[in-house]
Design a protein around this nucleic acid. Structure first.
Length: 713
DNA sequence: TACAACAGCTTTTTT
DNA sequence: AGCTGTTGTA
């Protein structure tokens, strides 16, 4: 089967796809078919006779790599088995594991997640007796922030504090001490954090020439996606892998650089042609995603940037509708208006083709409540990660104890549910368990006799230790043990958490050994990412929305201190990144873009609603690129007339259409039992005009639900 | 008196 | 969800 590349791609894309020999830098504007280009290039290489095993595809998330490989397989009609694809971190993890003895980890190593790193930081701090009783002492998260930033930007701690956290300067010596102690602790316990993966790989490739040559020979063709978000060490890794004359393609967009906070260096893109001699530069500027009015708005956002981007995206896709800027009275009514808008869009698009984006994870809370109440399913990306959720950590702590009985933090987690046992008692029990004398044994016997839950925990651990360490079986056993604890610990929402655990069990079943399972989970193990739910609205942080697109995009909380973030208002550099973030957010939209600017938001500190200032990214926009709607005190929306308008009068396409999604109506006269997608079976208690029901759901209590979301039984 | 339980407060972004 | 300060209990 032959693919008609010239027909499927535009000129620039074709050039990037067929330039397989030598270094290539592709500057790809938002929505310019970047993914398509990579996919077709994969296919082209294989069709030219390249062995798939000679290709390495480095992307920002593992999901992105898998998706691209799958799409290439689809158009090729053959498997790309053997192609290496994944994130820098996962590639590093695999390579380091295979060469552990070469980097001084003869007995292998354990990968830590962020929480582990922070906890070690804290215990190092405590051991050094630093910051005792000082309430304004930097928190463990701050300590870790500074340490990891210093590594990722390859600056001294001194320089990091100077540039980004001037107020922490008095703690400079402490930071240095803690950072050293942290590094030492990791070495002693054969632990690695995310940063170590990259730096140790760089070091390994630097000094081990045979390995470097071996990898260079193996990976004849290398592609790196999202190059604007790579940091210095990642750039060095690419150089090691490709050699200076390798066949390497980097794809990126300087206007979409949004990871400077973690050391990403846009200069990598500019340096690329200098490092790789004879680099061919290809620019993709035609946009295939968004209608022109949306691009008019996003181009305006870039106009305000201090760093000039000589980029002006254009599209053939027309629309007579401008993006909307809506000013709700408060963040509460904002949630309601967003729900209205989703209901409206739902008539035209599938739910998973609609997204609500925000700056930070917590900003969607009230919307999540509103969506649950009305019965719209949603899927959230960003914010608290799957493996960071408390119930997942509870279960994982048990696995950690099977792997390593000296893991004190895991013991604390595993005993957290035992009434009358706190951190001190756990430490005592821990000490007694690892001492072999009569006193300790007596103490243990006493405690086990006193706390039935402790006995059960130890029995379960013994059971797990005695059975073969197969992730699937272990998880199954654990879930049975953990079920009653889950229900007691999280009475409000345990069904949801249980679903998460079952998901974890499913994932575990796909692994044959424990270490790989745990490693993958810390690296990219968000199973929610894996399958995009069919019938659920997408809620996402802007960062997690990178590279994705939806027909309708709604961005909330566009006010000062939220978007841009309060933390970014100090330094011009940070504010510029917020602007690019805003650019990324708006360019996700294909047909509809709605920006919400609440006039007041709830402030937890003062406990009341406070007036806001609109985000500069909105106020800067010329009025010609959007339609403005204000929420009136009556709750409706009014279109504000523009100063200079000769446009057709306001379309009636506002939000005030009756929120009545199509679907089977429930017969009001028939009270009885019904079924709801989220709450399950319930008893209808009352009918509320015109189309709502009060239903009693076992485990959830009374809820008022719109008839369309109920199925009569 | 030591420790556990509870309530209240704050929350950027992520491999 | 974690940290801190406060209250409650053996």
């Amino acid at each position: 089967m032959s693919i008609d590349f010239a027909h499927e791609l535009n000129e620039a894309q074709l050039e990037a796809v067929t330039a397989t020999e030598g270094p290539v830098l592709v500057i790809a504007g938002a929505g310019s078919g970047k993914t398509r280009t990579i996919v077709y290039r994969l296919a082209h290489l294989v069709q030219q006779g390249v062995d798939p095993a000679q290709i390495l595809l480095l992307t920002f998330t593992r999901k992105a790599a898998q998706e691209m490989l799958a799409r290439a397989e689809a158009i090729l009609g053959r498997s790309l088995h053997g192609t290496s694809g994944g994130t820098f971190h996962s590639f590093a993890y695999a390579t380091l594991r295979a060469n552990a003895m070469d980097i001084g980890f003869e007995g292998g190593f354990t990968l830590m997640d962020r929480a582990d790193s922070e906890n070690i930081c804290k215990s190092v701090k405590d051991d050094l007796k630093l910051g005792k009783g000082d309430r304004s002492y930097p928190k463990k998260a701050t300590l870790m922030d500074v340490i990891t930033k210093s590594r990722n930007k390859e600056l001294t701690i001194d320089a990091v504090l100077e540039r980004e956290a001037y107020h922490l300067n008095p703690y400079l010596d402490d930071f240095t001490e803690i950072s050293d102690g942290y590094a030492k602790f990791k070495r002693q316990h054969a632990l690695m954090d995310y940063d170590d993966l990259l730096f140790l790989l760089d070091e390994l490739l630097e000094k081990n020439e045979p390995l470097r040559n071996q990898l260079q020979t193996r990976y004849k063709y290398i592609m790196v996606d999202e190059y604007q978000d790579t940091n210095l060490v990642q750039a060095r890794i690419v150089r090691h892998l490709a050699g200076t004359k390798g066949n390497v393609m980097a794809v990126g967009d300087d206007a979409q650089s949004i990871y400077a906070f973690r050391g990403a260096n846009v200069a990598n893109i500019l340096e690329f042609p200098k490092i790789f001699e004879g680099t061919k530069i290809v620019r993709l500027e035609k946009n295939y995603r968004s209608v022109q009015p949306i691009l008019d708005l996003t181009n305006e956002i870039l106009q305000g940037a201090t760093a000039r981007f000589d980029k002006n995206l254009y599209s053939d896709l027309k629309s007579d509708k401008l993006p909307q800027v809506i000013h709700p009275l408060s963040d509460q009514t904002q949630a309601r208006l967003v729900v209205d808008q989703i209901l409206k869009f739902q008539k035209k698009y599938l739910l998973h083709d609609i997204a609500v984006l925000f700056r930070a994870g917590y900003q969607s809370f009230s919307l999540e409540v509103a969506l649950t109440r009305i019965g719209i399913d949603y899927q959230k990306f960003g914010g608290i990660r799957f493996h960071e959720a408390a119930h997942i950590k509870d279960v994982l702590s048990m696995i950690r104890l099977v792997l390593n009985p000296h893991d004190l933090l895991a013991w604390q987690r595993a005993m957290d549910h035992i009434k009358g046992v706190g951190p001190k008692t756990v430490a005592k029990i821990y000490a007694a368990m690892h001492t072999k004398d009569g006193k300790s044994e007596k103490y243990l016997t006493k405690m086990v006799g006193k706390h039935e839950a402790l006995r059960e925990l130890l029995v379960e651990l013994d059971k797990l230790r005695s059975q073969p360490p197969k992730p699937g079986a272990v998880l199954e056993s654990l879930l049975v043990y953990y079920q009653p604890i889950l229900m007691e610990k999280y009475p409000d929402d345990y069904p949801k958490r249980q679903a998460g655990l079952e998901q974890l069990s499913q994932i575990a079943a796909g692994y044959s050994d424990m270490e790989t399972f745990i490693g993958d989970l810390s690296l990219d193990g968000d199973p929610d990412d894996e399958k995009r739910k069919e019938n659920a609205v997408v809620l996402s942080t802007v960062h997690s929305a990178k590279g994705l697109e939806w027909s309708a995009v709604i961005i909330i909380d566009l006010v000062e201190d939220r978007f841009p973030s309060r933390r970014a208002m100090q330094r011009a550099e940070d504010l510029e990144e917020e602007r690019r973030l805003m650019y990324v957010a708006c360019t996700r939209a294909k047909e509809h873009l709605t920006l919400l600017v609440p006039s007041s938001v709830f402030n937890r500190a003062s406990g009341m609603s406070e007036p806001t200032l609109p985000s500069p990214f909105v106020t800067e926009l010329p009025e010609t690129v959007y339609d403005r709607l204000n929420e009136s005190y009556g709750g409706g929306l009014e279109q504000r007339r523009k100063q200079v308008v000769s446009l057709p009068e306001p379309s009636t396409d506002t939000l005030m259409e009756e929120a009545a999604p199509s679907g089977p109506k429930v017969d009001p006269r028939k009270l009885g039992f019904c079924k709801h997608k989220i709450f399950g079976k319930g008893k209808i208690v009352a009918f509320i005009e015109p189309n709502k029901y009060r239903v009693n759901f076992p485990g959830f209590g009374l809820k008022v639900i719109i008839g369309d979301y109920l199925e009569l039984l």
